[in-house]
């Protein structure tokens, strides 16, 4: 609780608006961060329309860590891109923080971490993290102070003047997480952020991400095709299936909020992983 208060104070001095997400305790009665109602995405192709998403219903409460899992082509990335206003829906309704995805994007409601770090090679690590702040009109000094703090949170203090190519893949992705969080968005969206990394690095980053979520309780939407990753990180796991892209099962994680990598050998964890594997296999049969 002390840690939370400390964060609360630090954040509130910069930007009073960001009090809301860290202040609101994640509970069943929490406000909805994302509402997806009967949403469909259809691509018109030459021969027949492709149903990338069909009749999706999903609510994500504030402070939840939701993982979207499924095989390639199941629409998990499309669903997140719809929420992020990177893709348009063909039918249905999507609300982010109670407004349309477009309005939410313009209000800078979310930070998006892509599969690749997408760091600008001509900017230093610090310059990359200040990029969104610069776009949002922060002064140079302000932006740098905030960016340094966020680099410290992902454990990259001392690397601020390095250029991206001087960093390992895992460090680059941590920079991109710091960049996505630099402007304190209420939602963090991550599209297979650790997919390109080796398993050891991936484990460590998963642990750090878990701790980050523990401290800040920001709403996270996380796309992955790794069962272990989804089970370890998420408080709720949405299992999806392809052709047409749809949700086949939603699993509430029975694991406690505070987790460590050792839990992956516990019976509860193995049960979650097992349930996930079965749901995925089920989706594959039909």
């Amino acid at each position: 609780m002390v840690v939370r208060c400390d964060l609360f104070l630090r954040v509130s001095m910069k930007n009073p608006e960001v009090l809301l997400p860290s202040d609101a305790a994640p509970s069943a009665g929490a406000r909805l961060a994302v509402e997806v109602r009967n949403a469909s995405v259809v691509y018109e192709t030459a021969d027949s329309p492709v149903h990338a998403l069909e009749n999706i219903d999903l609510d994500i409460r504030e402070g939840e860590f939701v993982a979207l899992i499924g095989p390639s082509g199941c629409g998990k990335t499309t669903l997140m891109r719809v929420i992020a206003d990177l893709e348009k829906i063909s039918a249905g309704q999507v609300l982010v923080n109670g407004v349309t995805p477009h309005e939410a994007r313009l209000a800078r409601a979310y930070g998006y971490v892509f599969q690749a770090p997408a760091l600008f090679p001509w900017r230093t690590v610090l310059g990359n993290v200040t990029l969104p702040l610069q776009i949002q009109g922060y002064s140079r000094a302000q932006g740098q102070t905030i960016a340094l703090e966020h680099l410290a949170r992902v454990g990259l203090t001392g690397f601020e003047n390095k250029y991206p190519w001087q960093l390992s893949g895992g460090m680059q992705q941590r920079v991109s997480i710091a960049r996505a969080l630099s402007f304190e968005p209420r939602i963090l969206m991550m599209d297979e952020p650790f997919g390109a990394l080796d398993e050891i690095t991936r484990d460590r980053l998963n642990e750090q991400l878990q701790q980050l979520w523990q401290r800040e309780r920001r709403t996270v939407v996380f796309v992955t095709h790794s069962i272990a990753e989804a089970a370890y990180l998420a408080t709720r796991i949405v299992v999806m299936s392809p052709r047409p892209g749809r949700i086949i099962k939603v699993i509430e994680s029975p694991l406690p909020d505070e987790r460590h990598l050792g839990m992956r050998d516990s019976a509860v964890f193995i049960d979650v992983a097992h349930a996930l594997r079965e749901a995925l296999a089920e989706g594959h049969h039909d």
């Binding site: 990177l86 892509f114 610069q134």
Partner: peptide, 28 residues
């Protein structure tokens, strides 16, 4: 690349901002 333009899109950057911050430095 698409990922870079989409990233600026998520920051709600204006056309001039993406020209100045992304396209021009990338074109050097």
């Amino acid at each position: 690349q698409r990922i870079e333009t989409e990233m600026l899109h998520t920051y709600a950057a204006t056309r001039w901002q993406s020209l100045w911050l992304l396209r021009l430095p990338a074109a050097l």
